[in-house]
Design a protein around this nucleic acid. Structure first.
Lengths: 275, 275
DNA sequence: GCCTTCGGATTACGTCGTAAGCTTGAATCG
DNA sequence: CGATTCAAGCTTACGACGTAATCCGAAGGC
């Protein structure tokens, strides 16, 4: 296609067109941001870069490695976040708070890629999301130690930080990627575990339409199921009544208050067994 | 293969062999538990049930719907959990605590399937993991309202419950599914965002071997990267020093203390603006 | 000059989800 | 009872996927 012109505007100053592992990961991330994780197939990534799919393997071992690189790329946005500090300037609270806000920023910037960050298997059980990289784990731990934390206190803070961000941000980004509802309910049983199954519709009759949306993709469908006119009043009266409240967005305020409480929890631990 | 004997031991008392949406979902879940999400292909599920892959479509609309059914199946373990109560018997704290422990139980029982529970797009932004089903959301909310919560208090508790469990359990189950390490590090940049890239190895040279392990699968490889002999002492001195502490398992104790704190947080909210 | 090296294209294989149509045997009804 | 119906399961086939193997042409070093 086109011509054999090879502009060679690459920065590395070597052969080939500007392809590189990072550029590939960046293209993959763009595709995910636009159309979900599933849209980032090797062929699609190649097409976006004006290259055949197989050429990517000259820079990336496998698609799995590429996904890991995307995760790394996302987390690496912390490096260029101006509000995040690499070491505590005004105490550990501000350090952790700024870092947490940085994490939230990258999570909200890539709601489709964030599940990747949270669920891809790590190289060790203690390399946890949402930091996921040894450099940042090192940074956090050494920052806390420098602030006078004991080893145990630092590790406790590390775990609390991880689980808090994981929970809140997965909720928040998950709420951003929702697909269309189903007519039938299809529950196998009810919470009261007394009646077997009073479900009327059973399995859905009309659902021939297919859209690829496994764990891999998560379509963008931002359309929100407006609760108050879809919820079955008889089966779910409380949900029906609280519909408006359920749909309200409390993410920012509760992120702040949850973060504060988490930091308080850590501070409490500091006071409990002082160094 | 075999013979044309058709034992017809099905419970439903109709035609066909015992196949059903629930049996299919159960087979899929077993495959996931054994070998990761990716192992539950339509063909593999069919094989496990002694049936061709296409036969599954007589009971399941699409593989996506099947994954949703698996999620439902996992969450439905709450229904048969003897310690979980369908309505508060001794106050909301015990109700929520028992429910939380029930969720933890199903999460630990299916560490490979749990990411599905946490990341599959829901039918509405407020249908959140780890409950994910309208019956259980209804149950939780009505339980709290019955205990005297205001609407806002119940919704706050619902969100706190979700994000706490999401965070802790994703950490815990994530630590159970770890894959083998890579020789090279491959970071694009370091946390201090001062030096560009002091990485020695760059991209991995020897990694021709492939094993399917995208978000879909997450191989079982329970082998743990023993920190103290693999961590680069020069680049990550703190991690190296804290290696033993990082590898320690604090999940149960910190789940308990975190749960207590979360319930305290809710109680605080009750006191703040009393009904 | 040649020769190595390396980045990209080509071809091809096995597996995946699944659309379309066929077969079959139990349930139903005359 | 035999004819009909029809859902459950089988067969075939297609396009998209990840990727192994191979080839090719140009840039760099000698």
């Amino acid at each position: 296609m086109g011509s054999t012109e090879q502009t060679r505007s690459a920065a590395s100053g070597r052969r080939g067109r500007g392809l590189s592992a990072e550029r590939i990961a960046r293209a993959a991330l763009e595709l995910m941001d636009e159309s979900g994780v599933g849209a980032a197939s090797m062929r699609a990534i190649g097409a976006r870069l004006g290259v055949e799919a197989m050429s990517l393997y000259k820079h990336v071992a496998t698609r799995d490695a590429l996904l890991d690189a995307v995760v790394e790329l996302v987390v690496a946005e912390l490096n260029t976040d101006p509000d995040v500090q690499s070491s505590p300037q005004h105490g550990w609270r501000e350090y952790l708070s700024r870092l947490a806000h940085g994490v939230r920023r990258y999570a909200r910037a890539h709601p489709h890629a964030f599940p990747l960050v949270t669920t891809r298997p790590a190289e060790a059980p203690w390399v946890n999301p949402p930091l996921r990289s040894l450099p940042w784990i090192e940074s956090l731990l050494s920052a806390l130690l420098a602030e006078g934390f004991t080893d145990d206190q630092a590790l406790f803070a590390y775990r609390s930080f991880n689980s808090f961000l994981l929970g809140y941000l997965l909720m928040e980004t998950g709420a951003m990627t929702v697909h269309d509802p189903q007519p039938g309910d299809g529950s196998f049983s009810a919470p009261g575990n007394s009646e077997p199954a009073p479900v009327p519709g059973g399995l859905s009759p009309t659902r021939t339409e297919h859209e690829q949306a496994n764990l891999e993709d998560a379509e963008s469908k931002t359309e929100v199921l407006n609760p108050q006119d879809d919820i079955d009043l008889d089966r779910y009266p409380v949900i029906h009544r609280l519909a408006r409240g359920l749909a309200e967005d409390h993410f920012t305020e509760e992120f702040e208050s949850g973060l504060t409480d988490m930091l308080d929890r850590i501070a409490q631990r500091l006071a409990a067994n002082p160094a």
